[in-house]
Simulated assay, not measured.
Amino acid sequence: MWFISDILKCSNGSKLCKGKTKLDKYTKPILIQHFPLYRASDSQCTEPDAAPLPERDSLFVERWDCLSKESTEYLVESLRPRLAFGAHTHHSCVARHSFVPTPDHKIEFLEYTVPSFSWRNRLDPKYYLLTVSGEEANQGRKCRRNGKDW
């Protein structure tokens, strides 16, 4: 992990990188993993495919339902992602993360938890379509359901 972090930091213009590996063109990375980043529960999730109430308010168990708080902080501070994707919970969620590792630096990004694409896990399997170019990433999941855009 430290090797990837060093390449990203050097590619982003760190002055401590003489003779180290760099990318030809730096863009903030997109983090994709099975588990969602740390959060206490799905209570902030209000998407149509979010967990049903009262399940949404059930507290997560770190290292079981989501990454630990320490692992999340390590990943975010090392990689400084522009966007993150996780799954595991079988429900949808969009979480806004804000980390301030140093007083003069703030790391903010969205994390999308992708709902399951399995009939075994839900009666309405879902998937996301994402397009990525340069510094932009657009979630192409907008559609209509029951007369509403989402």
Score class of each variant (00 low, 15 high):
Ile4Asp: 09
Ile4Met: 14
Ile4Arg: 15
Ser5Met: 07
Ser5Phe: 05
Leu8Ser: 01
Asn12Asp: 13
Asn12Ile: 02
Gly13Gln: 10
Ser14Asn: 12
Lys18Cys: 07
Thr21Glu: 14
Thr21Asn: 11
Leu23Lys: 15
Leu23Asn: 07
Asp24Trp: 08
Lys25Trp: 07
Lys25Pro: 04
Pro29Glu: 12
Ile30Glu: 13
Ile32Asp: 04
Ile32His: 04
His34Asp: 12
His34Pro: 02
Phe35Asp: 01
Leu37Met: 08
Tyr38Met: 00
Arg39Gly: 07
Ser41Asn: 10
Asp42Trp: 01
Gln44Gly: 12
Gln44Pro: 10
Gln44Ser: 15
Cys45Arg: 03
Cys45Trp: 05
Thr46Tyr: 01
Glu47Asp: 11
Asp57Lys: 12
Ser58Trp: 11
Ser58Gln: 15
Leu59Ala: 12
Arg63Asp: 04
Trp64Ala: 09
Cys66Val: 02
Lys69Pro: 01
Glu73Leu: 04
Glu73Ile: 03
Leu75Cys: 07
Glu77His: 14
Arg80Tyr: 00
Pro81Thr: 03
Arg82Val: 02
Leu83Val: 00
Ala84Asn: 07
Phe85Arg: 03
Phe85Glu: 06
Gly86Met: 02
His91Ser: 11
Cys93Ile: 08
Val94Leu: 05
Val94Trp: 00
Val94Ala: 08
His97Pro: 02
Phe99Ala: 05
Pro101Thr: 00
Pro101Asp: 03
Pro103Cys: 04
Asp104Ile: 10
Asp104Glu: 03
Glu111Phe: 14
Thr113Asn: 14
Val114Glu: 02
Pro115Cys: 06
Pro115Tyr: 11
Ser116Asn: 12
Phe117His: 14
Arg120His: 10
Asn121Tyr: 08
Arg122Met: 09
Leu123Ile: 08
Asp124Glu: 14
Tyr128Cys: 09
Leu130His: 09
Thr131Phe: 04
Val132Asn: 12
Glu135Phe: 13
Glu135Asp: 03
Ala137Gln: 14
Gln139Arg: 15
Cys143Arg: 10
Arg144Ser: 04
Arg144Pro: 01
Asn146Arg: 11
Gly147Val: 07
Gly147Leu: 06
Asp149Met: 12
Trp150Lys: 00
